[in-house]
């Protein structure tokens, strides 16, 4: 037995040393990735697909949109935690605010097979979901992602969390059911409010304030039918949250009296290229007045 165990330990040690070496190398590469440098960016747009579609950074002086679809607040927090210290030029952060951002379906993204792998691939260099209290995490997929990305080969590209403004001319607003069920229900039941995502929203605000970066929340337009279909508990919570944020002095910008027709929507809850061209200058103007 002894020779077998010695052989096994020796083999495993060599393997682990090799993997550990690769991990260290990849970690140092990931920390000095040029993608992290946002250049002369002053206005940073973060959030999920809502602002990814709605805010064209061209309308903002030295603006940059790094939103990614389906991004929960926890991931946004990790992004900012990494990017803000390395980019002192950033003076304003525009963060998306919508009813679905506080839905507990966001918590499931770290355990749901449809999402987990993608979430871990985006976050493995900036935040560890296993450390987030009170959410269930598919740790097997997480470990698997970290090992594959960091421990098997020297890699140059580790920054998978930088999105960009992306839009299209298409328009089809017939997806109300998909959007409502996807945002506010999980496995057929009302997903409820996520205390975790709510907490991360406030952590983002704290982080920006601590770094003396102006944080502005942006509510992007959705179709009236979508608003009417949002379950009552989310409407109530969202209203309370807005009040709380206002009390804290966090500016919340919205379209106000802007009138948009259905052709300016990509689908029931996202603007398309035409809608973004109307919405972005309004937000830029309002931002200038703050």
């Amino acid at each position: 037995m002894k020779p077998f165990l010695i052989k096994l330990v020796l083999f495993a040690s060599l393997l682990l040393t090799y993997m550990g070496f690769l991990y260290s190398y990849n970690l140092s590469v990931s920390k000095s990735d040029p993608k992290i440098d946002l250049g002369d960016c002053e206005t940073l747009i973060v959030g999920d697909s809502y602002l990814m579609r709605a805010l064209d950074p061209e309308f903002f002086e030295h603006g940059r949109n790094i939103c990614q679809g389906a991004e929960p607040y926890a991931l946004t927090y990790w992004k900012l935690q990494t990017l803000l210290p390395k980019n002192p030029h950033v003076s304003t952060v525009l963060l998306g605010l919508a009813h679905h951002n506080i839905s507990a379906y966001n918590d499931e993204k770290f355990i749901d097979p449809q999402w987990a792998e993608e979430m871990f691939k985006r976050s493995y260099t900036i935040g560890n979901p296993l450390t987030v209290e009170t959410i269930a995490v598919d740790w097997r997929t997480y470990v698997d992602t970290v090992v594959r990305q960091m421990c098997l080969q020297p890699k140059e590209d580790h920054v998978h969390y930088m999105g960009k403004y992306s839009n299209s001319r298409q328009s089809d607003t017939s997806d109300l059911k998909r959007a409502i069920e996807g945002h506010f229900f999980y496995r057929g039941k009302n997903a409820g409010i996520s205390a975790v995502m709510r907490r991360y929203l406030f952590k983002i605000i704290e982080l920006c304030r601590a770094r003396k970066v102006k944080i502005v929340l942006v509510v992007s337009p959705v179709r009236r039918r979508y608003l009417n279909a949002i379950p009552e508990n989310f409407l109530k919570e969202f209203k309370g949250l807005r009040g709380e944020l206002s009390q804290m002095g966090v500016p919340i910008l919205a379209a106000g009296g802007l009138r948009l027709n259905s052709k300016e929507f990509l689908n029931i809850d996202h603007l398309n290229i035409f809608g973004a061209k109307k919405f972005s200058p309004i937000i830029a103007r309002k931002l200038g007045k703050l």
Partner: peptide, 18 residues
């Protein structure tokens, strides 16, 4: 042998799909 085993293990991790 050992480099071959290492290579196989790496292939398992790298090429392994879902």
């Amino acid at each position: 042998r050992w480099p071959a085993y290492f290579a196989l293990i790496m292939a398992i991790f790298l090429c392994g799909g879902s």
